[in-house]
Design a protein around this nucleic acid. Structure first.
Length: 883
RNA sequence: GCGGGCGUGGCGGAAUUGGUAGACGUGCUAGACUUAGGAUCUAGUGCCUUAUGGCGUGGGGGUUCGAGUCCCUUCGCCCGUACCA
């Protein structure tokens, strides 16, 4: 029978839908497997071929695990809050909910057309009030939690010990104190503002060149009242938690980097003639003797006191210049260090020497104390600065056996590695670390500083408070009311969800006010005592909904609580999470943070949400460029004899690999692929292209290749004449069981490309043989089904089975068929393979040697040579060393 | 700079983790069947050579009976990050 995918595929998709084949039940008697895709943002453009890559991979694994007897949770939903729908609303007046609904419908249609085995009864949508009710509820939990540093966990704010002196000041002071401890807080924040999007953005959303990640416009600084989350409190926990996760090393490293833990010390320097102290943070307290100047950030609090009268103007000018600079392109200017002397000196606590205090913008106010001691001899940044301004460089760490030791000792080269201290003793203070190495030096110095109460060991994180509000309409409203008397209260649980009001106008206010400030009826509230209040007009960022969606899939329709406790305990953690590497830091770090807070509060049962993470590689496309590197749109390219040329100019073009883009006209739409080759071919090709985690270019010829395979397989296995009675051909039976084993191994290890290849090899053999038994044919249908489920189901039904094969037990490998008595050895002479020789596996080495040397094909290599050594690796190779 | 990854036929990629390099697919060549085919089937296909043979996994060196795989060195590409003291 011809392979008519256009008939087969809709038929089975309808069957699965009508029979709810993939509905998941909470059957606690079965082992569970929770396999999660990063849910999509439903854009108006629909699915691109990148989406089905991850989705097909998880679908294959899900189908396989079901056949292996697992209770599989494999859900999908939509991360549907976001800017595009809101911008469309501004232009057309269409409510974002309508646009969103339309886009979700389209995504659902496309996803279903791929034959993915999701449980559609668990579909979620972050914009659904039934969903964001619980997003708001989690926000309340964050607000009502503080981090107990001693217990190293988050605790209810009601358990926060209030110091007596605060209590004594009254209720307002107590509230303020609690506010300083809550994980969510409302405060004036210096924020990045995108004037194009009319919203603030998180630090993480600003690219290094100062452009907004979403739209590319330059961002500026603005001071606004904002909601922030104290994620740095969980820095240590987020760091530790990474150790036991089965995640790509690169992602773990990126998170570690982002958290940026460093340990060092805070040290107080007397400021000469001011009677005040300048506190610095350093990871190298051991190099105090090498400090030849200090630097404070331009934004430092003490700057006006420190600067002397004669330097006031210079310093003021510098501060002004650097303020401008940080808003423009800081990175370009970062190449040359700038700074000015403040006119004042600090006293080095280890030797009482005076060192000048400079102000320079290479020191950032947001990290450590915003002030540093500079040790040019042993820090490359300080070294560059010192060279620029001719500040002395004093080497205090002898590198010993190093080529350029003399230069280093003379202070001409910076040395940041270990060594032995020199010039590191003072008669003035009696402190001495000469002769020690780096780790000893750090330890001794910190002890000395602590004993003198001029410094203490300190841990620092790069991670900053997370800016958690946006001046948007299309996001979760905060369940918060600001009362006219200054009190802030949260909406009662019973009154959640707090829905979005309907608006006429979606345009945000110029001053950084969200469009919600126009919704008078919604905005103004009055309590039972007549007190007036105003609802929070900011909304939550898009991250909010995606921070916890994996939890809602567990119990998506629960109206009483966020989810059922038992169900959560059964399903969590997510066993495999597949998605793009672009979420390596933000989404995955935020999610882990929320999860840990929920864990501390006893709401979830696992310390981490995602046990195993896998990043699929990006799908690229071929593109064409001229000799000068100018890109040519694909519809202007003609191919002839493997060469490419420009359709109009005839100029020869080079084929390159690039991201799919509209301008290059090389975007592949999955709908088109399905129309032309069918969903099974789309799935198979996505997986056959190469390793799942690598980036790889789309090639239509490749789709044709897998389509040919499916056609050949379908035509052969659906032909009754090819399916015979009796016992299976030995060669076929053996390869069949090798194939089951290989496919099983490859699915478990997400190596789908080689698994498919094994199926092709088997298919090629049986076609050559011309016939198979029904048993073999059924097994083939079963092991093909996870990859190409429509063909799998169709063949299965052809053999007289009347229900889905989705829950048929995965075929068992008959190991006895794989046993070998002989092995066809490649025989090498001096490492070069010369011929094959079949020998019994059990044969002793000396017997093997005899047999090999006696073989007539061996004679020509042995002629005039002696055998020096005979290597036999059982079931692998024979190597004869001659000479 | 730093961190992570990669480099194998014309192309996408295999290689059981130190054991026959190039599985599988595509492309190409030849043939069969066809009114025709961008359908289907068969055979061949890393490079050089007349076969025997020689050379081949970015380059150079090393360890080993044996290296795509391990070590040293060097070149190139991709991703992330960026004065975090």
């Amino acid at each position: 029978m011809e392979y008519n995918f256009a008939e087969i595929e809709p038929k089975w998709q309808k069957y699965w839908e009508e029979n709810k084949t993939f509905k998941t039940f909470d059957d606690y008697s079965k082992p569970k497997y929770y396999i999660l895709d990063m849910f999509p943002y439903p854009s108006g453009a629909g699915l691109h071929v990148g989406h089905p890559e991850g989705y097909t991979a998880t679908d294959i694994l899900s189908r396989y695990k079901r056949m292996k007897g697992f209770n599989v949770l494999h859900p999908i939903g939509y991360d549907a809050f976001g800017l595009p729908a809101e911008q469309y609303a501004m232009q057309t007046g269409t409510h974002p909910a309508i646009t969103t609904q339309k886009n979700c419908d389209n995504f659902r249609r496309q996803i279903k057309a791929i034959g993915l085995s999701y449980d559609w009864d668990r579909e979620i949508n972050t914009t659904d009030p039934k969903y964001f009710k619980w997003t708001q509820w989690i926000f309340k939990q964050l607000y009502n939690t503080w981090y107990d540093n001693d217990m190293k966990k988050g605790r209810p704010i009601s358990e926060l010990p209030i110091p007596e002196e605060v209590k004594a000041e009254g209720a307002e002071a107590v509230n303020k104190y609690m506010g300083e401890k809550r994980l969510a807080y409302y405060d004036n924040a210096q924020v990045w503002w995108c004037d194009s999007c009319k919203t603030v953005c998180a630090n993480e959303e600003v690219l290094t060149d100062g452009a907004h990640e979403k739209c590319g416009h330059q961002v500026t600084r603005k001071n606004l009242k904002q909601w922030l989350l104290r994620i740095p409190h969980y820095g240590e926990r987020l760091l530790e938690g990474l150790d036991d996760l089965d995640w790509p090393a690169g992602v773990k490293d990126m998170q570690r980097n982002w958290i940026g833990k460093s340990s060092g010390a805070e040290v107080d320097f007397e400021i000469d003639g001011l009677g005040k102290k300048l506190r610095v943070y350093t990871t190298r307290p051991d190099t105090l003797f090498g400090a030849t100047y200090m630097v404070i950030a331009p934004e430092h609090d003490l700057i006006n006191e420190i600067v002397t009268a004669d330097k006031k103007e210079t310093v003021a000018n510098y501060i002004k210049a650097s303020a401008l600079k940080s808003d423009l392109d800081r990175t370009d200017l970062a190449k040359e260090k700038t700074g000015v002397f403040t006119g004042r000196f600090a006293i080095n606590p280890v030797n009482k020497q005076q060192i000048p205090i400079w102000v320079a913008d290479y020191v950032l106010m947001g990290y450590g104390t915003g002030a540093i001691m500079a040790v040019p001899a042993h820090d490359t940044r300080d070294f560059e600065f010192a060279k620029e301004f001719e500040i002395p460089v004093i080497c205090i760490l002898d590198p010993k056996e190093v080529e350029k030791r003399k230069e280093i000792l003379a202070g001409n080269i910076c040395w940041t590695e270990d060594g032995e201290y020199i010039n590191s003793a003072s008669t003035e203070t009696g402190f001495d670390i000469n002769g020690l190495n780096k780790s000893e030096g750090i330890k001794k110095t910190v002890e000395w500083l602590e004993s003198k109460e001029i410094g203490k060991a300190t841990i620092n994180f790069k991670l900053r408070d997370w800016l958690f509000s946006r001046q948007r309409y299309w996001g979760e409203p905060f369940p918060v009311i600001h009362w006219e008397d200054g009190e802030v209260t949260l909406v009662e649980d019973d009154d959640l969800p707090l829905p979005l009001p309907n608006l006429e106008q979606y345009t945000p206010g110029e001053s950084g006010e969200s469009p919600l400030s126009n919704a008078e009826d919604w905005l103004i509230v009055t309590d039972k005592n007549g007190r007036k209040g105003r609802r929070e007009t900011n909304t939550m960022p898009q991250w909010a909904g995606s921070c916890w969606y994996y939890l809602r899939y567990i119990d998506p329709n629960n109206t009483e609580s966020i989810f059922d406790v038992k169900k959560e305990q059964y399903w969590m953690p997510v066993d495999l999470y597949v998605g793009g590497a672009e979420h390596a830091v933000l989404h995955l770090l935020y999610s882990r943070f929320w999860h840990k807070v929920l864990f501390d509060l006893g709401i979830v049962s696992t310390g981490e949400p995602f046990q195993k993470l896998f990043n699929q590689g990006m799908i690229l496309a071929f593109a064409y460029e001229t000799a000068t590197g100018a890109k040519v749109a694909s519809d202007l390219v003609v191919e002839k004899d493997g060469k490419y040329s420009h359709a109009e100019t005839g100029e020869e073009l080079k084929q390159i690999v690039a991201k799919m883009s509209k301008s290059l006209k090389n975007v592949v739409n999955p709908d088109d692929v399905i129309n032309k080759f069918g969903a099974d071919s789309l799935r198979l090709y996505e997986m056959f292209m190469g390793p799942l985690d690598e980036r790889k270019p789309w090639a239509e010829n490749g789709v044709k290749g897998v389509f040919n395979f499916l056609g050949r397989a379908y035509r052969f296995f659906s032909e009754p004449e090819n399916i015979v009675e009796g016992s299976e051909d030995k060669e076929v039976a053996k390869l069949l069981h090798q194939t089951i084993k290989k496919v099983e191994f490859d699915i478990e290890h997400l190596k789908f490309n080689t698994g498919i290849s094994a199926l092709m090899v088997f298919n090629n053999l049986v076609i050559k043989k011309g016939k198979v038994t029904k048993e073999t044919a059924e097994i083939f249908a079963q092991i093909l089904a996870p990859f190409a489920p429509h063909v799998g189901e169709e063949l299965w039904s052809v053999y007289g089975n009347d229900k889905t094969l989705s829950y048929e037990p995965w075929p068992l490998v008959d190991e006895s068929l794989l046993q070998e008595n002989t092995f066809e050895y490649p025989v090498s002479f001096n490492g070069k393979m010369r011929f094959l020789l079949e020998l019994p596996i059990e044969m002793q080495k000396n017997e093997v040697e005899k047999a090999v040397l006696a073989d007539e094909r061996a004679q020509r290599w042995l002629e005039g040579k002696t055998v020096r050594k005979f290597i036999l690796v059982p079931k692998r190779i024979i190597n004869v060393v001659i000479g």
